[in-house]
Simulated assay, not measured.
Amino acid sequence: MAHIAQFTAAEAAFVLREPVRTVKKSLDLGPVRPVLVRRAGAPVRAIEWRDLFYLYAVRALRDELTPKARSEFYEALHQTPVELRDEVRFGRFRVSVRDLVQEVERRTSDLAALAEKVEFRADGEPLLKGTQVEVYRIAALLDGGASIEQVLEDYPSLSREHVETAKAYAEAYPKAGRPYPRTSVKRALQGAGLEALDDA
């Protein structure tokens, strides 16, 4: 399977299950070589699948590779397509990578599947598929401290999977521009003691 996709730091963080700031630091430190790509009209750093695989592999092998060996491993990955072999050889090392490749492929498939759970309004705003509810609105509520159960109370048409999708999508594809409020109108009214207005 050829890997030609490029991944932003946020997408890589989703695959690696790490905070975006940790991934950005890895891109700053090297040896990974990010390139600038345009996403949503703005230039962002992105890495190829091989670089993403390297970041995953060095975390899995952190106790076995010295800093020098990591650099050699990176260069070896860029000389022969890793997906075409079971191991990577460099210096006196042979590293079995089949299980690591399979795991990164599984995780990048999860990222692709996430995109399938979202559809877009005419203005480009992502909506939870089959609803008219904005992905980033739900993610903002979770960021504001609401539990999944509280979100489901405020949006009874949504399922738990919808809410989890919103959270994951917003992490992998952060919202540009003005954020959504971190509390729902219903909870804001309750907090102000104006519950009766909500029923009016």
Rank of each mutant, 00 (worst) to 15 (best):
V44S: 10
K24R: 15
L194M: 14
P126E: 09
D123W: 07
R21E: 15
R70M: 13
V44N: 10
G144N: 10
Y155W: 12
E48Y: 00
D110T: 01
E87S: 13
F120M: 04
T165I: 14
F7Y: 15
T131G: 08
L77K: 00
L194G: 06
L127P: 00
P81S: 11
A57Y: 05
T108V: 13
Q102G: 12
A2R: 12
S109T: 08
L141R: 13
F53C: 08
A57S: 15
D86Q: 11
E18I: 02
P174C: 08
Y56E: 01
Q132H: 04
F120A: 07
L77H: 02
D123I: 07
A46M: 02
Y54R: 03
A196V: 02
P81H: 10
V88Y: 01
R106T: 09
R85F: 00
Y54W: 11
R62D: 12
E83G: 00
D199W: 14
P174E: 09
V151Y: 06
D123N: 14
L52A: 06
T22H: 04
R89F: 00
V133P: 07
L111Y: 08
D51Q: 13
W49C: 00
L158N: 02
G145R: 03
F90K: 08
P43F: 11
A115Q: 14
E149M: 01
A40R: 15
A139E: 08
P31H: 08
G124E: 08
